[in-house]
């Protein structure tokens, strides 16, 4: 019973709504800029169209339904819908409906062109769905002194722990060389792969120890991500920021680092107040 009371009180603690609202804006901004870049490069008819209609991919997911509704125009329509919803999510007007429709439309784009829908897209959609149920949904000016229940922030932190922990364990299970003293460091292979990164293998192959240290650091950071759930959260976040900035500089993964960094405002924010100090009140929907 005491445990249950602790859980209820934990869910009812209140936090400043602005860090999560910042994450909301940044996630929507990442998705928008990424789609606008596709538009700018003239890739929309190539990527968001089935192979049988002249698109790039020969395969799509069985959960694709918009093609039955709109035919070859499904991709451009879903993309426009996603972009419009992301603008609303950023401004904070009609946020909940915009997140729901935007995430569904964005997911359909992924079903339409699976190779281009990566882990980061799934992470961004998951984050937006958590924010959908939070109090960080109004326009910015209404959130000035707004407090909201802390559980969405806690849930996001839990999801981030799952992501980093899974990534660390997957590395170790499938490639023990991540911890090796002598084998070629996997990190070196990753950041010198010309198809995905910028680092020249002819130069950096001579410095394996540097990447061995980097490999150990990556594993240490990912496996220590449980610290996100403790008072060490902010310190862990500083190391996480360094890792993502490093990935951004060394690799060519599009919005991966920026998408992940969009979650960091909630990691860097002040810890929640106890429930007794202020009953959580969500700001009104804009």
């Amino acid at each position: 019973m005491r445990l249950w009371r602790w859980w209820v009180e934990r869910c009812e603690r209140s936090v400043d709504a602005r860090p999560l609202a910042t994450t909301r804006v940044l996630l929507a901004l990442c998705i928008s800029l990424d789609l606008l870049r596709v538009l700018q490069l003239g890739l929309v008819p190539v990527l968001f169209r089935l192979g049988e209609d002249g698109g790039l991919t020969a395969f799509h997911d069985p959960h694709l339904i918009i093609h039955d509704w709109w035919g070859p125009s499904a991709g451009p329509i879903a993309m426009t819908l996603t972009l419009a919803c992301m603008v609303l999510v950023m401004t904070g007007y009609g946020t909940r409906v915009a997140i729901l429709i935007g995430v569904l439309a964005y997911a359909q784009l992924g079903h339409l062109y699976p190779p281009g829908d990566r882990a980061v897209d799934r992470i961004l959609r998951t984050g937006l769905l958590v924010i959908l149920f939070s109090g960080a949904v109004g326009p910015w000016w209404k959130l000035k002194r707004a407090q909201m229940p802390a559980w969405p922030v806690d849930l996001l932190k839990f999801i981030l722990v799952m992501i980093y922990l899974s990534a660390g364990l997957a590395k170790l299970i499938q490639q023990p060389a991540w911890l090796s003293w002598s084998a070629q460091p996997p990190l070196l292979r990753i950041v010198t792969d010309p198809l995905a990164a910028h680092m020249n293998p002819m130069i950096w192959d001579q410095w394996p120890w540097l990447f061995r240290l980097g490999s150990w650091g990556t594993i240490a950071l990912e496996l220590s991500s449980v610290l996100i759930l403790t008072r060490w959260c902010r310190r862990w976040a500083m190391a996480g920021i360094a890792m993502h900035v490093g990935i951004y500089l060394m690799m060519d993964l599009g919005m991966f680092s920026l998408g992940m960094l969009s979650f960091y405002p909630v990691l860097l924010a002040a810890p929640p107040h106890p429930a007794a100090s202020a009953r959580a009140r969500a700001p009104p929907e804009g």
Partner: peptide, 15 residues
């Protein structure tokens, strides 16, 4: 699959 949010995170295991 509805939201395409499969919770499996095998991020960059090797190059």
């Amino acid at each position: 699959p509805v939201f395409r949010i499969r919770q499996a995170w095998n991020l960059y295991r090797d190059g």
